[in-house]
Amino acid sequence: MKKPITLFLLLAACPCFAQAQKVFKIKAGEYPDKVIPYADRYQLSQFTTGKADFIDGRTSQARFNYNYIGGHILFLDAKLDTLEIIDQALLKGITVGEKSYRFDKRFGYAEIVGSYNRASLAKREVLARIGTEKGGPYGISYTASSVTTYRSYSSDQAQTSKKLNTNAEGVFTYRTAHYLIDNNNRFYVPTAGSVKKLYPAHRKQIDQYLREKPVNFGKEADLARLLGYCDTL
């Protein structure tokens, strides 16, 4: 049995988004997690054994998968219900196979794509709502969440409920944001200023590098190139 999962459909605006071509239209009254195919909703082909690490030293094992709708990492319980960790305030990160994710209460989950001396480069990809189309006067669009039951490793269950849009259909596509994560698990939006904050002793060299070899802070390859250079300083 699968329980409906709360959706965070609007990813916070950020200058480092990249747009994919695939678009999904959800009619009024339909649920994105029922309409969008499994392979497009989840990063992995199946829920895979992994480990959740908490800042208080606890660890828990379960079968996890990353859901692009809202950018949540979900897990299966003994009854094969699809659930989400509630005590995220204490969550440090999740490892699933060779993939590693970090969590921030402002930005959510992000997958580590590169590790450097003073920071990690991470990306967060979601199926975000990018627009609406008018629906009938009695239509309902699933804009935020329905009444949803979650279960965490330390709390049995909780419920959240938000108002549903009654007259518009949703249009969804993939959005990717990149973040820099320092060695204390603090997230930064990639900018020249945040990079210099991570490498404070080398501000002048970084400024010179950016003048000579401009960096697009919305491109993963450019960010990796810049962080690789910073590691040589």
Rank of each mutant, 00 (worst) to 15 (best):
residue 82 T to D: 01
residue 15 P to N: 09
residue 31 Y to C: 10
residue 118 R to V: 00
residue 109 Y to M: 00
residue 145 S to F: 07
residue 37 P to S: 04
residue 116 Y to M: 11
residue 11 L to P: 14
residue 42 Y to E: 11
residue 217 F to W: 11
residue 140 I to F: 10
residue 117 N to I: 09
residue 50 G to L: 05
residue 168 A to E: 15
residue 71 G to T: 03
residue 45 S to I: 00
residue 86 I to G: 01
residue 105 K to P: 02
residue 40 D to Y: 06
residue 225 R to A: 00
residue 86 I to H: 05
residue 123 K to W: 10
residue 13 A to D: 10
residue 127 L to Q: 12
residue 219 K to M: 08
residue 42 Y to L: 12
residue 147 V to G: 12
residue 20 A to M: 04
residue 78 A to L: 15
residue 201 A to L: 09
residue 120 S to T: 10
residue 163 K to I: 11
residue 97 G to Y: 01
residue 97 G to K: 03
residue 185 N to I: 02
residue 155 S to H: 01
residue 4 P to K: 08
residue 44 L to T: 12
residue 140 I to V: 15
residue 107 F to T: 05
residue 123 K to F: 07
residue 89 A to Y: 08
residue 161 S to A: 12
residue 142 Y to F: 11
residue 137 P to Q: 15
residue 217 F to T: 00
residue 226 L to Y: 03
residue 102 R to E: 02
residue 68 Y to N: 01
residue 222 D to R: 00
residue 43 Q to R: 12
residue 30 E to K: 12
residue 96 V to F: 06
residue 78 A to E: 15
residue 212 E to K: 08
residue 177 A to N: 15
residue 143 T to H: 14
residue 182 D to V: 13
residue 22 K to D: 14
residue 31 Y to N: 08
residue 97 G to E: 09
residue 11 L to Q: 15
residue 111 E to A: 14
residue 171 V to K: 15
residue 138 Y to M: 14
residue 99 K to S: 07
residue 34 K to D: 13
residue 175 R to V: 09
residue 122 A to R: 08
residue 212 E to G: 03
residue 156 D to F: 10
residue 183 N to T: 15
residue 63 R to W: 08
residue 117 N to Q: 13
residue 76 L to F: 09
residue 95 T to C: 02
residue 66 Y to Q: 09
residue 43 Q to L: 08
residue 203 R to H: 05
residue 9 L to M: 12
residue 59 T to C: 06
residue 77 D to S: 04
residue 41 R to A: 07
residue 7 L to A: 07
residue 119 A to E: 02
residue 100 S to G: 05
residue 67 N to V: 11
residue 145 S to N: 12
residue 160 T to M: 11
residue 102 R to Y: 12
residue 169 E to G: 13
residue 66 Y to S: 01
residue 170 G to P: 05
residue 94 I to C: 00
